[in-house]
Design a protein around this nucleic acid. Sequence first.
DNA 1: TATAAGGTTTAGATTAGTCTAATCACGGGC
DNA 2: GCCCGTGATTAGACTAATCTAAACCTTATA
Lengths: 229, 229
Amino acid sequence: MLSDVMEDYLKAIYYLEREGDAPVGTSRIAEYLEVTSPTVTSMVESLADRGFIEREKYKGVELTDEGETVAVEVVRHHRLLEAYLTEHLDYDWSEVHEEADALEHHISEEFERRVAEALGDPEVDPHGDPIPGADLTPPDEGVGTRLSEHGSGDRVRVERVSDRDAEELAYLQDAGIAPGIVLEVTDVAPFGMVTVAVGDEEQSLPETVARSIRVTTATGSEDRAVGGA
Amino acid sequence: MLSDVMEDYLKAIYYLEREGDAPVGTSRIAEYLEVTSPTVTSMVESLADRGFIEREKYKGVELTDEGETVAVEVVRHHRLLEAYLTEHLDYDWSEVHEEADALEHHISEEFERRVAEALGDPEVDPHGDPIPGADLTPPDEGVGTRLSEHGSGDRVRVERVSDRDAEELAYLQDAGIAPGIVLEVTDVAPFGMVTVAVGDEEQSLPETVARSIRVTTATGSEDRAVGGA
DNA sequence: TATAAGGTTTAGATTAGTCTAATCACGGGC
DNA sequence: GCCCGTGATTAGACTAATCTAAACCTTATA
Ligand SMILES: [Mn+2]
Ligand SMILES: [Mn+2]
Ligand SMILES: [Mn+2]
Ligand SMILES: [Mn+2]
C-alpha cells in the first residue's frame, strides 16, 4: 500500500521531530536519508497529499496522527527485529540495526505477532529504545537526560544508546557501557569530552557520543557496572 | 546490486526450466509472475544484457551459470526461511511461503548463515523441497516421481509437496499427507483423480494435486502414516 | 530597510518497472 | 508452398524515485 521508501520518510520525520525542533525542514530530512533536497520536496508533497504529514511550504513538515501511526508501526518492527536478532540469533547489538532496517518493511503482521510472543513482549530493544506496543501508541522516546549534560560526580544509569552507528556501539561494548550499567562522571573536559568510571575502568567519550547516550540519575541502591543486557 | 524484481525473474526461470521444456518462453514467465508479456520481453532483455540468461528472440531464455547461481541463492533463502519459520516461530507449513517470498530478497548473508546454523543445516524445507547448500550448487529438484503417475496398489513415500498454494497445503495437512508419510494408491479414476489410503483413512485427490506431490516407492520396512514433519 | 546567505522549490532529465495497442515472426495445416 | 493463428516483440505511455541546475523565499544583519 505504502512503499518502503515512503515508510522510511515517515520514520525519519518521526525521529527528527523528537531530536530537534518542529517543524522538520527539508534539508534535515535530506541529510538524514542521504538524498538531495529536491527529492525530499517532491516526496513530502506526495506524503502531504496522502494525509500522512502536515506541510507548510518553505517551513517544514509534521506528522499527522495517521502518519505517526505508520511511523510507530515501522519503529515497532525495527525494534522487535533488533531484539529478536540479539536474543534468538546470537547477533551482537552493533550488528542488528542494518539488518532490521532491511527487514522492517517486509514482515507481516503475523510475523510481528510471533516475534513479539517469542520475546515475551519486551519493552525495550537491545539499545534501550522503547518498543511501541501492538496498539501503536507512540512510546515515550525522551527518557532521562543526555550524558553530555552531566557534570563531575554525577552517578547515572545508562538507559539508551544510539543504534545508528555500528562502530560507536562496538566501542561502547568494549568500554562496558550498555543500558542498565551505572557509571560515574569523573571529568568533563573542554569541547564536551566526558570521562566516566565504569566499574574499575575509566573511559573517555567525545561529546557526540556522550550526547547520544541517555541516562537517569542512579539511586543509591544500584552498584556500578551492574545490570545491562 | 540486483533488484528484487530481477531476482524474482531469475527464480521464476529456475522453476520453469525444471517444470517444463527449455527454453522458457515469454508467456510462461508472464503467467507465473502475473505480469504481461511485453513486460517480460523488456525484463529478459536486461537480464540477457547483464549475462544472467541466454536469450534467443522468439524462442525463449535459459539461465547462464551466473544466473542460476543467483536463483539458487534466492531459493536457499526462501527455503531456509520456510524451515526457520516452522521450526522456531511455530508457523504452519501452509503459511510460510508468502512470508518467505517477502523476506528472501532482504536478508543478509550473515542472517542466512545464522538461520542455517540455528536449524543445523537442514537438507529439506517443510514441504520436502531441497535446500541448496551454502556453496550454491544447484540441488536435485527432481526426486522421485509424481503421484499422478502411479496406479492402484503402489505403496509410495511422500517426498515433496508444492509450496505455492496455501489452501492445497491446508487440505493436505488435514488429510495427513506430508513428506515422510507412506501411502497406498487404492484407485485411479477418470480425469486422473487419485484415491489413496493414509493410515486408516482414504483420501481422494484431484489430478492437479496428485501431480504436485512427488513420491518414491516405499520399501517394505516403512509403515503407513509414519514419519513426516 | 536593503541585501546577501541559506534553505527550499521548480524545471527538466533519468532509470526501473510496468501497462495497452499494434505489429511482427514462426510453424502447422491445407 | 501459402496462410493463419499463436505467441513475441515493438511502440509509446505512465508512475515512483531519484538527480542537477536554476530560480525562488525568508530572515538575519549591516
Ligand atoms: Mn528502512
Ligand atoms: Mn535500536
Ligand atoms: Mn519473491
Ligand atoms: Mn518450500
